[in-house]
Design a protein around this nucleic acid. Sequence first.
DNA 1: TATGAATGAGCGTTCATTCAT
DNA 2: GATGAATGAACGCTCATTCAT
Lengths: 230, 230, 230, 230
Amino acid sequence: MASDTPSHLTARKKPRQARAAFTVDAIFEATIQVLVAEGPDRLTTTRVAERAGVSVGTLYQYFPHKQALFYALNERYLVNLATRIEAVCEARKGAPMAEMVESLIATYWAAKMERPEVTRALYRSVVELDNEALIRTFAQRVDAATQAMLASAQDATFAELATVNLTLLTSVFGAVRSVFERNLPTRDARAVQDQLVLMCVTYLSAVNCAGKTPRAGERQDIVALRQPEP
Amino acid sequence: MASDTPSHLTARKKPRQARAAFTVDAIFEATIQVLVAEGPDRLTTTRVAERAGVSVGTLYQYFPHKQALFYALNERYLVNLATRIEAVCEARKGAPMAEMVESLIATYWAAKMERPEVTRALYRSVVELDNEALIRTFAQRVDAATQAMLASAQDATFAELATVNLTLLTSVFGAVRSVFERNLPTRDARAVQDQLVLMCVTYLSAVNCAGKTPRAGERQDIVALRQPEP
Amino acid sequence: MASDTPSHLTARKKPRQARAAFTVDAIFEATIQVLVAEGPDRLTTTRVAERAGVSVGTLYQYFPHKQALFYALNERYLVNLATRIEAVCEARKGAPMAEMVESLIATYWAAKMERPEVTRALYRSVVELDNEALIRTFAQRVDAATQAMLASAQDATFAELATVNLTLLTSVFGAVRSVFERNLPTRDARAVQDQLVLMCVTYLSAVNCAGKTPRAGERQDIVALRQPEP
Amino acid sequence: MASDTPSHLTARKKPRQARAAFTVDAIFEATIQVLVAEGPDRLTTTRVAERAGVSVGTLYQYFPHKQALFYALNERYLVNLATRIEAVCEARKGAPMAEMVESLIATYWAAKMERPEVTRALYRSVVELDNEALIRTFAQRVDAATQAMLASAQDATFAELATVNLTLLTSVFGAVRSVFERNLPTRDARAVQDQLVLMCVTYLSAVNCAGKTPRAGERQDIVALRQPEP
DNA sequence: TATGAATGAGCGTTCATTCAT
DNA sequence: GATGAATGAACGCTCATTCAT
């Protein structure tokens, strides 16, 4: 993923030693903690170093400048996320479409929910220009993975797969972000997650060219199943 | 709207004079321009004042601190947006559900697209903690408006209206944000917008308790109409 | 003189007010004092500002960066020096060659001796690359002035005036620098100054094409006059 | 030469081993290279060590601090220079004065010209206070050598030898420095060198007490010989 | 003995904010 | 009111120096 990274954002030296790896991890964790606890504009190199239990100088031995640290943190986060999404896409190949959607949303949601304050903090933090490259790379990986998965659905074929896939991802990722941004209570968040699945499934059914006339029964089942509980 | 605004974010004085209003507007516009042209971390009070053609001192006469300026700018932006959404919701009361969805999305999208760089800049700019209040207020207004609209749909009734509404808004707003963040080409953006309408309509149809068995013809029409062109 | 100054070395804003001029002067004087009292590598912006009785911010209102301050200081120094040399060259036009040399050396020496520690400090201070431009400009002004003066000598004509002039200046300026660098006692310094005059006069006589055979008497007089006192 | 060196500038250990001598040399050469290639304020211990192919730790094994390294480098440079000057002075003992002057200037000039960028870099580099001692020692050696040489001139006797000698050295060394500082083109530099010889010879002739009336022929010869080509 | 990761004081610079004019 | 020069805390970053390995 780092292949087309602008060179000025690359770490000055690759940590070879175990100690170095440990230090880098400590710095990453400290960055997150500062971000969560103090907010993006109190994220200073000194503070990060302090919390990581190292000196500023050490921090600068691993990252040529503040932005590179932030970039690397996001990269780590997104690479991890992309990997998990790819894994679930692989695992669900050939499954029924509904199962795919459910797995995808569940995985993404779970990943974001593991450390909700971190998720929120990263959403919040300044989106530096250079992060666009990161986001693009992430998007490409995920696009490819989900598209491949959808193409293998046992019960659906999509004429304009790329567009359908894009719409799906855009909505799901966007919706999740919205939920975090509005800081919805768990109950509402959970409800939205379920409805999101329903929404995506109905959408995919609608654009499915395979079962020209989807057996009404099946579709109704899903709908009935997912009818928001009163 | 400013009713529950933290007091330290309120402007020192309400501009009564025409001149004052003019100045404030100039400052707002300058803020946007600096944001767009130079990015969030070059947004300094001096630069804003310069571009607005006033002195820093004057800027501080209208806004007690930088954050208040930024807050007010966002407030203006969101109030305007909410007002437009309320208007369209009002106008579409009693209309068919599909029309509602289409109007809502079109309006929101259009508002964001009027000055895309501004939209992007505002998405980008540091989300200060205190902006949460702003977002909450905005969300409440919009929630209320769309919920009232949906409740009046001539062809649909929703059991769990609040949840359905929340899901709808979350997805639509989120998707739009995603499109901007990924900086999608116009063609893709347009396609996603269309598909988003379809997605929302199919979703609402699915959770519609009114027309237990929606007249297949109508639904199929929409689907057929919106099938992404091959 | 500042006409071809690299733009990044120019002061951010030209001081128009009397107060500003005063402040700039204070900063210059402070710079010199720090340079003299603490040496070039303790010359920090903070220290300069402190000694000037202003804040760092103020310093940066007048000079875009440290180098610009240093550059401006040297410029002021060299412009002043060049002006004085030009004045003496003008005044001695048409005079006998020996008088010219004596005046030139005396003027230059006096200028350097007014504040010997300052002279020494400036000689010492890092010669930044961009100062080359300054030195070149200075050299051109002085070259022109002395060359014009020599050309007007009532008792001498020089075939290769440019080279003669260059040799003269190079030796005189270099010798003075050497004297400062070696920190010679006043007595020795004084002696060298006198001998320097003699050296230059004999040199000019030697390359003088006018009085093919200089009246031996006159020349001997000078030599006798300047014979180092036993 | 290091006899009156301030103790804090002395190398921690005298390199006895061949390997040590080799390392020290590598460090010196690296220092020069960094100085030339990157300038005085990019001369860091880390960079020097890197270029020398050793670790910083090793560098600090040979030099207690950066200043000591720089001091030692200058010492080496000046000791070498002084030695060469002493050699030429020794060789020219009993020669005619003009020959002495010519040899002295040629030697000094040649030494400085061998690696002109190095010469310039050393002139440029910060003149630390403690270098004064170095310069003084160098000056003393050279003073002694040239004075002894001049005293042995077969065709001249000088009443105030010390002063004459000082004037000579001051002018020659100063002129050379000026030439480097002004970065004169080779052509001009060469011309100045020739003229410098002429200047010094005429000067010495003028203060020569021996040949009260120097045989006009000889003197005129020199002058004619050296008349700058039209 | 050689290494080079770690240190942290200290630098140059910015910018939100104030207040005399 | 309006102005903009002045302020100074705080930032990002460097590099001489140390010391565990």
